[in-house]
Design a protein around this nucleic acid. Sequence first.
RNA 1: CGGGAUGUAGCGUAGCCCGGUUAUCGCGCCUGGUUUGGGACCAGGAGGUCGCAAGUUCGAAUCUUGCCAUCCCGACCA
Length: 492
Amino acid sequence: MSKEITSREQDYSQWYNDLVIKAGLADYSAVRGCMVIKPYGFALWENMQRQLDQMFKDTGHQNAYFPLFVPKSLFEAEEKNAEGFAKECAIVTHYRLKSDPDNKGKLIVDPEAKLEEELVVRPTSEAIIWNTYKGWIQSYRDLPILINQWANVVRWEMRTRLFLRTTEFLWQEGHTAHATRDEAEKETVQMLNVYADFAEQYMALPVMKGVKTENERFAGAVDTYCIEAMMQDGKALQAGTSHFLGQNFAKAFDVKFADKENKLDYVWATSWGVSTRLIGGLVMAHSDDDGLILPPKLAPIQVVIVPIYKGEEQKSQIDEKVHELVKELKAAGISVKYDDNDNSRPGWKFAEYELKGVPVRIAIGARDLANNVVEVARRDTKEKMSYSIDGLGKAVIQLLDDIQVSIFNKAKTFRDDHITNANNWEEFVQLLDEKTGFIAAHWDGTGETEEKIKELTKATIRCIPLDNQQEAGSCILSGKPSSQRVLFARAY
RNA sequence: CGGGAUGUAGCGUAGCCCGGUUAUCGCGCCUGGUUUGGGACCAGGAGGUCGCAAGUUCGAAUCUUGCCAUCCCGACCA
């Protein structure tokens, strides 16, 4: 009642904003375009981080940390990268404030504290990292370098949206250095697969793996691989990218190594990242008009238990049963909350935990105890079931697994239903407007055509799927010959 | 940065056109009590630079000007 959420049908954007704010994931802040990530949202991020971090380590990577500031001269070294990010950089020009002589109690920038060289607040860290790697690499024996960092970055975007695009955001960025092209390419694909596995198995978010066109490529990359997800409004969301950087950064920063034959060559590089944007994707992909729906594997609270009682005597009987259950679930690694706060009533709690997307709710009252059962409700389907108290722990664990699979399947069915072939321009435009989703269509392979299509329809090529089926056809716009379909969509 | 909308208590709002005592109502909050199987009820209470600044006026939430912020739509992007 007190926390009305705009329905998806009414206003999808507003629904998303309402959800993020009212479920307690984040808040607006005093800084334009920057948000406060609240404890519940941060707990979700921590769960994602923990799993990704493990996956990075399992593939041989180590964490490190590089500075927030990049001297301008380093930033501009790799020209394409610098050019690509130049228009969205925050720059530090001074290092001191002083009292304003004309305005008591106020401060002004001290003009005498101007930096010799401006510092760019990193929008990404290739420059500072490759400048560092230069000092670490002399021989093939120093390779590969497999490093990841968890960090914040700043990109001064014109228009921001909670989690999906904020001025400052949290992410991880992997930066690797290799002796051969082949090894670097394999690394790029390996990390793409790590992202796809994470998205599908943990976020329950089906993704398309593919390669970006030249227009959509990361500034400074030779190839950009990506995973693309589909939101409930049929728009695409780029969920992660993995870049094969070739020798571009090694050349820009003069990073050479001696191979076994003592021949000097430039080092091969990759970089890859996912950000707090994933939280936005998670929210948009699964949730409904009543609140969040979180996949059990990432939910900060997986099971909530609500007691229903009259009087202290009943309460202590319930407590006794619940404590056993909590112990069992915790031993199995399940995050469980027993909400016996007497200040709010059961109905209020039910609504609140639905809003917060807790996958499983267990209600237990005197009536249940008498029958040796509890009421189990799953958030994704809103289904209520009666479970025997005997073996409840195991049953709940099984249910969490079922929910994880079930929300993935639901998202996948939706996604698959929204991949449609278009064979001519009229069909393409109609599908885009009326059905939305990914449109698979032939494209002549030129940047001009891609640009033109974007101008006309706001749709971009999200990716050329990996292992794409080859098929002769003609471009939907230019009519020129094409050997494969690519995926178009309107995107976030 | 262009177009549109909005700004009154923690949240949602009435009042503004047509200036005039103490700024309306609901939710939430505090105290006490009764309650507890889908967002409880009763009684009492606290909480306001009416976005900011100037101006008009005897008097401004209300009129004028400027500024700021937020949201939505576009261009830019993870």
